[in-house]
Design a protein around this nucleic acid. Structure first.
Length: 453
RNA sequence: CUCCCGUUCGUCUAGCCUGGUCUAGGACACUGGAUUUUCAUUCCAGUAACAGGGGUUCGAAUCCCCUACGGGAGACCA
């Protein structure tokens, strides 16, 4: 039913109500949600939604020390922020639970018994070892093709303290949860020979494998680590990125729609996504491109949506007190076209909501360098006071008239006035800025600025 | 050290499977210009790549081999 809903949601043909495709994302809660993990989750989710299959969230919390409620919260919050809803798993349940490995001890014991009966394990130093077959494992990977690897040494599947190890629980759960496609990072490719041996030892069908390329540091060696700037989903949440932009960017790291189009709605990506179209080579993380995408998405947002998303951010910054929603909407209506992200708003839009703002030093220096800004501001004051209407049209006419009268460029009015009114050298359309700030505040701010010149 | 994976503009990629249409396309970034006789937008233009060497072939970015480089894995971590 869940799969059916997913199909309806994304407008697929519903010839088949669901499919037997089952994918899982199996993170261990570490307290961080790494961008690489997020991409793995995303690709699993995409393929589940593409096929109308089932997306399972399984928590690999066998490392009890790191398994805290806070760590789980970070994970759920990140998943939900990215829009990666799971069909089975914590908080939603499902027929193959429990979905925490820490609660599946009995299942692991049962599976161990199977291996004991078939003579594939032995005990040594208190630990249980799995006997490898000695056969070369031919792994068929949807992304990499045929990969051969020989697992040479027997390996531990139960520690001497009685707890099972990753390779064992991972495979057992994939069997028990009827996972058909294992989509994970390439760092697991070398483990796959172990896993395939286990699948075969259990007499279970070997799932399809798809090993994703890794996300490498922007510069410098190695893969992104949690210490690298930009490597955590939390960071993008805190910086008020639009999740759809982050998702779109992540989709393009290792996958491409192959049609010279990059900004794609998730619905389209779900339609086009194929595991076999994923690249083999690792990709460097490019924060600049993500920022660009975020800007594109931000500017394309319907105004109402933008207002809704900005409101809590400016409220938190303490800027919205005493202002009606309508005013915020007016401000954003003129600011949106040049926005790069919501993150910059508490600073860039401060002067719309507060008289307590600083004058940008660089802009100030630039303004003082040219012409006679003081005289220009006095002229503006006079002209603004006389205007019948205080709107874009009348303001533009007035400024242009002054410029012509005094034989200077409008820039000589605009630069100092923008600085006086907003404290900044850059910003929304100048005439819109004046209109929204309003005549009284504009005049007062020009006065104030003249005082400090 | 061993095993596995990879290598197209600075970065993400298209093309590679099914050799000729590739004087290698798009995007970010960068540079220049236009518009806004401001700017963060928008528009236009430009710089820039098939890792190297050997084959196969009439012809190779595309197929094969070697080298180099990059990445990953080698735990009673996950």
């Amino acid at each position: 039913m869940r799969a059916f809903k997913a199909r309806m949601k994304y407008g697929h043909c519903t010839l088949f109500m669901n499919s037997s495709v089952r994918l899982r994302f199996a993170p261990s809660p570490t307290g961080f949600f790494h961008i690489g993990s997020a991409r793995t989750a995303l690709f699993n989710w995409l393929y589940a939604r593409h096929t109308g299959g089932t997306f399972v969230l399984r928590i690999e919390d066998t490392d009890l020390a790191r398994n805290t409620p806070e760590a789980l919260h970070v994970l759920y919050a990140g998943m939900r922020w990215l829009g990666l809803d799971w069909d089975e798993g914590p908080e939603v349940g499902g027929p193959y639970g429990p979905y925490f490995q820490s609660e599946r001890g009995d299942i692991y014991k049962d599976y161990l018994e199977i291996l004991r009966k078939t003579g594939r394990v032995y005990d040594q130093d208190g630990a249980v070892y799995f006997k490898v077959s000695g056969e070369v494992q031919v792994i068929t990977d949807l992304i990499r093709g045929r990969v051969e690897r020989l697992e040479e040494k027997d390996f531990v599947i139960f520690r001497s303290d009685g707890t099972p190890v990753f390779h064992f629980v991972n495979v057992v759960d994939d069997i028990a949860m009827k996972i058909t496609h294992v989509v994970r990072g390439e760092d697991h490719l070398s483990n796959t020979s172990k896993h395939q041996e286990l699948f075969k030892a259990f007499g279970a069908p070997v799932p399809e494998f798809a090993h994703l390329p890794l996300i490498l540091k922007t510069d410098g060696p190695g893969k992104m680590s949690k210490r690298d700037r930009g490597s955590l989903v939390e960071e993008y949440i805190n910086r008020h990125f639009l999740p759809e932009a982050v998702v779109n960017y992540l989709c393009l790291l290792g996958w491409s729609p192959k049609e010279n189009r990059e900004i794609l709605p998730i619905k389209t990506i779900v339609d086009l996504f194929e595991l076999t179209a994923i690249n083999k080579n690792n990709a460097h993380f490019d924060a600049q491109k993500l920022v660009f995408m975020n800007a594109e998405y931000t500017r394309a947002l319907p105004l109402e949506d933008l207002v809704a998303r900005v409101k809590p951010v400016l409220t938190e910054a303490g800027l919205l007190e005493g202002y009606a929603d309508g005013y915020l909407k007016e401000v954003l209506a003129i600011a949106q076209e040049k926005m790069r992200g919501i993150e910059e708003l508490p600073v860039n839009l401060k002067s719309f909501f507060s008289d307590d703002f600083e004058y940008d030093a660089a802009a100030k220096e630039k303004v003082f360098k040219k012409g006679d800004p003081k005289a220009r501001l006095h002229e503006l004051k006079g002209a603004f006071a006389l205007l019948r209407e205080f709107n874009e049209e009348s303001l533009e006419i007035a400024v242009k008239a002054l410029a012509e009268e005094h034989g200077v460029s409008t820039g000589e009015y605009i630069h100092p006035a923008r600085l006086a009114v907003s404290g900044m050298g850059i910003g929304p359309s100048f005439y819109g800025l004046l209109r929204v700030i309003g005549r009284d505040r504009v005049l007062k701010r020009i006065d104030d600025f003249i005082q400090v010149m």
